[in-house]
Every structure is written in structure tokens, then in C-alpha cells.
Design a protein around this nucleic acid. Sequence first.
DNA 1: CGTGAAATATGTATCGT
DNA 2: ACGATACATATTTCACG
Lengths: 165, 165
Amino acid sequence: MSTERTFYFVDTIDRRILNQLQRDSSLTNQALADEVGLSPSACLKRVKRLREEGIIEREVALLNPDTLGQCLHMVVEVTMERDNKSLYQRFLTSALSAPEVKQCYQVTGECDFVLIVTVADLDEYDRFCDRVLYGDDNMRKYRTLLSRKRHKFETSVPMESLLST
Amino acid sequence: MSTERTFYFVDTIDRRILNQLQRDSSLTNQALADEVGLSPSACLKRVKRLREEGIIEREVALLNPDTLGQCLHMVVEVTMERDNKSLYQRFLTSALSAPEVKQCYQVTGECDFVLIVTVADLDEYDRFCDRVLYGDDNMRKYRTLLSRKRHKFETSVPMESLLST
DNA sequence: CGTGAAATATGTATCGT
DNA sequence: ACGATACATATTTCACG
């Protein structure tokens, strides 16, 4: 598990840019420049740099799942049999490549992985379990928490306090 | 808990547009129009409609937490004392307004809520627990799973199969 | 980092199917 | 009702100070 060791220098203006774009990336560069008190060209240069450095990974549209028909969210806690790195890796590879798995956290505590799985219906969830969970012979057990409602979904990452946003 | 009942008609072209924008909303309207085989103006009209109807909720930049110094993710399972709607609502109001809570799922199963909490360090997490969890007298217990690594974070919502993306 | 001009993109009105 | 074309407005982008 190689943790990223690449840190970049991110100053207050960068943080304000990131803060805005985490909220709303549909801002025009001009509006953004205005907000952070920079000229459009200087602002654009910073945004491009933040993108190139991988600090901004990508920009996406967030859809409202409730408007798109069936969409079930599951929280799945997975416990492995043996604490073996390569067996863990094998599970990870399969879990990460599954389109149903939207999030995957490797945790310390009463289980080993927590997955957020999104499917259209319970049949699809069954097939997912057969394929990814039962398909791994180092998987000891899993526990499913079926979400009745996703009350909050916020993608932003904490930023050291800003003087003014 | 009022589930959204507003469904809209979303055809194949809309789905292709949504699919693209879920992946990458930094596409120019021209490039998007090209991808889905529409003129730029027709494409723009659809995107605006999808936004007005709330199918596209917003556009955001996803940052790489590993490049920004300390950022701990916690999976927190909360169990309430009494299954009382207004007491649940009181907890929800407080949890949803907490900036540390990035995601909140109300679940069926061995607990009542699953939170994804993001903090800079354990001190901040302690303060969060005191304020939001211990601060609610209908909270019976909670269990924390500390994430050692967030392996996957995908915001897209499943879309009925598309002929070609 | 800011300015200004050229290159692109967006947004709108209008017409055609 | 929906898409295409063309035109007007706005934004991005880059060379230069």
C-alpha cells in the first residue's frame, strides 16, 4: 500500500481556488479570478498547474440519483480470512474493477474493507456478491447495510482554514 | 423521509450526455456535442434542461486528498436509542450540518446511520464525536472504522446500459 | 502577475423538419 | 417538439511588459 509522498506547495490563493472549485467547478475562469482576487490569466495558470500536479484530479457532474429511477446504495463491510498482503491485493484488484463499487476504504477495526456499492436492484446486488465477494476464497464474511436514503453526499476534502472564502 | 417522486423523461441521448459529464464535466459543449452526435446548440439545450430539472445537481472538482497533507477518512456507524422519527430528525439535522460529515446514509441492518467523516487529525475527530455524537442523547452507540486508505472514489450513478458511450 | 488582442466557446434567434 | 445553422456575446489563452 504505497501512500502518495508527493506534496506540493499550495498557498492561500491556491486553497481559495480549490475551495471554490470543490463547491462549483462550472464557474468561469473570470468569475473564479474575481473571487480569489487575481487576473484571469494568473488564475488560469494556477488552475492548470493544480491540474497538472494532480491536486485537482478531475471535474465531474454530480447527478441526483432520485431523479433517475432505481438506484440502491449499500454499505458493505468485508472481513478477510488471512492478513496476507497479496491476497488482500487480489481482492482489491477485483473490487476496484467492479463498476458497482463506487468507494472502497481499507480500514482498521472490526473488518478489513468498507465498500459503498451502488446497484439498480437487489438482483444486481446478488450478482455482485456472487462475482466479487464469494468469488474470493480469502473473503471470510461480509455484512450488508442497505441504505434507505442517502441524506448527504459531499465530495470536498478539508482545507486548512481560509481567511475568507 | 420524503423520497423524491419527480421523474423526468431521459432518453438515450440524455443518458449519453449524463454519462460523459459524470466522467468529465470539463468537456466543452462542442466536444460533448460531438461525442453524442448533436449540434452544439441542441446539446447545450439538453444540458441546461438536465440542470434545471435537477438531474444534474452540480459540477465539482475532485481533489486528490493525498496531495493535500493530513486527511483522515472515518466510517462511523451510529445506532440510536429509540426508533423515534423526530429524534432521528434531530440527529440528522445536526449530522448533516457538520462539515466533517461528508456522506450520510440511513440504513437498515445492525445500525441506523453510516457516516463518512473526513478530518485533518484525530483531535478534530474527537471534537466531532463530542459535539455531534455525544451531543445527542438519543445516540446509543457508535463504532468507528478508521480508513487506512481510500482506494476508490467514484461519484457516478448507474445508468441504464447505453448502446455506445 | 497584469494587460490586451486573437482564438474558442457559449448562448440565442431563426428557420426547417 | 426538436435539431441545425448562423450570428452576437463572452470566455479562454497567449505573447509581452
